[in-house]
């Protein structure tokens, strides 16, 4: 089946009524969807399994001061990109892994862990990425309140 942007929008709102008004068509081939955290699994697996989104371009993590936002950039081979946004609260920054769908996506999740300090459940054990092994705990460079040089002071104190 050839998907169009409108068809995708219809299919999503048809299947998940609460998404009505939360889907934005930015331009041809660009959809932005705000997914409620509790329904994320269902929407994500529906997109990947039923709606021909076999490609995870990347995962972007944002610090929106009051909350974290995680964007999954899913794509079809024909070119339509669906940006699935989900909000993660700051006081409990725990989110789940999509490694079962995309084994290649694990590395992007490790970035979220290292740079934003999210806790990703279901992440397999492995080396950290991309910060060095002696990077101090609790320092997350991509958080807005993080300032350069913070890690150096801590490292010095430790040694």
């Amino acid at each position: 089946m050839m998907w169009t942007e409108e068809k995708i929008q219809q299919e999503l709102t048809g299947k998940f009524a609460f998404l009505d008004g939360k889907i934005k068509l930015q331009r041809p081939r660009r959809l932005w969807v705000d997914a409620p955290a509790e329904h994320f699994d269902a929407i994500f697996s529906h997109l990947v399994r039923q709606m021909d989104f076999p490609v995870l371009l990347t995962i972007t993590g944002l610090d929106e001061t009051s909350q974290f936002c995680v964007i999954y950039h899913l794509a079809q081979l024909e070119g339509i990109v669906c940006n699935l946004k989900v909000v993660v609260p700051k006081d409990n920054p725990t989110w789940k892994s999509v490694g079962t769908f995309f084994p290649g996506g694990i590395i992007y999740e490790r970035e979220l862990v290292d740079l934003l300090g999210l806790k990703i459940e279901g992440l397999p054990p492995g080396n950290r990425y991309p910060l060095p092994d002696d990077w101090p705990d609790g320092q997350f460079p991509l958080r807005k309140d993080w300032k350069r040089g913070g890690e150096a002071a801590i490292k010095e104190k430790a040694s």
Partner: peptide, 23 residues
Amino acid sequence: MRLGAIGPTARACGLERDARKAD
């Protein structure tokens, strides 16, 4: 497909992935 290979690596596996055509 599963591991998300791209570029010439993917295209050498018969996977037609090229952002110039797709997007």
